[in-house]
């Protein structure tokens, strides 16, 4: 059989990965506990979000590298995951850039970031019955 011109194939790893899996598992359990515990202390604002997402990224990286074998299998798979993450960042990033810098008048009127005067007017109009509140169905009986 001639050598293929394709990407180099990696031979199956001969040794067992059980120890590694065990370590990753324990790390994941600990990190879950950590993020849970930190959330109880209610770190305010952006820092809390950053910590929670940071821990999630560490956990996700562990799963992708070791459970999903990106660590010991170089080649196009890594590229696939990385490029998909680039586009995840792109969609979320540029969409958030839009809503965070958009003219307040182009945002939903009862959003936190809508102009306070506009919001107050809406609430007053709703209270005076000149404007219907967000449409709701009557609560279904369970």
């Amino acid at each position: 059989m001639t050598a293929h011109a394709g990407d180099a194939a990696v031979p199956a790893p001969p040794h067992s990965h059980r120890g590694r899996y065990l370590a990753v598992w324990i790390a994941l359990l600990l990190l879950t506990g950590l993020t849970w515990g930190l959330s109880r202390s209610h770190v305010p604002g952006f820092a809390g979000v950053a910590i929670a997402l940071g821990i999630a990224i560490v956990k996700g990286t562990l799963v992708a590298l070791f459970f999903m074998h990106l660590w010991d299998r170089p080649g196009p798979s890594r590229l696939v995951l990385l490029s998909s993450l680039v586009f995840v960042a792109l969609l979320i990033g540029l969409t958030l850039l839009d809503v965070s810098t958009r003219s307040p008048l182009a945002l939903p009127p009862d959003a936190d970031t809508a102009p306070e005067a506009l919001r107050r007017t809406i609430l007053e109009e709703e209270a005076a019955g000149r404007r219907s509140p967000p449409e709701r169905l009557p609560r279904a009986t369970p």
Binding site: F87, L90, L94, L97, D98, V99, S100, T101, R102, S103, A106
Partner: peptide, 22 residues
Amino acid sequence: GFFTWGHHLFTSGQSPYDAGVF
């Protein structure tokens, strides 16, 4: 091609910063 979609939103109320970038 992935970095350009916002040019369809120039007149939709999109933020002017986003519009400039796109």
